[in-house]
């Protein structure tokens, strides 16, 4: 299997189209009364890191590019201040 094939969903048919078109949810942090992204808000940041402590990619988190960037900086700041771990073993 080549690297290009791996990126496709395993269930995708040979035509190369997605098996089903799931509607993309709109960015959960863009709305009118969306919570403010802040490195101190560890509970919010916790939603955007994996159990291993990695930042969840925008592809999965569903955030828009700008908010994903904000979340990423906030997570990095929180890590530096030892509010959330860099790695979870």
């Amino acid at each position: 299997m080549s690297a290009a094939e791996v990126t496709e969903t395993p269930s995708a048919p040979a035509t190369g189209r997605r098996a089903y078109n799931r509607k993309r949810r709109s960015c959960p942090l863009s709305g009118k009364n969306a919570p403010k992204i802040d490195y101190k808000n560890t509970r919010l940041l916790g939603q955007y890191i994996t159990d291993g402590g990695k930042i969840i990619p925008a592809r999965i988190s569903g955030l828009c590019a700008g908010k994903q960037r904000e979340i990423a900086t906030a997570i990095k700041r929180a890590r530096f201040m030892a509010l959330i771990p860099y790695v979870v073993y």
Binding site: R79, M81, A82, I84, P85, Y86
Partner: peptide
Amino acid sequence: LAYKINKNRKGHY
């Protein structure tokens, strides 16, 4: 602290 810093497990913020 989420991890040890200079052998400290806790800290005053």
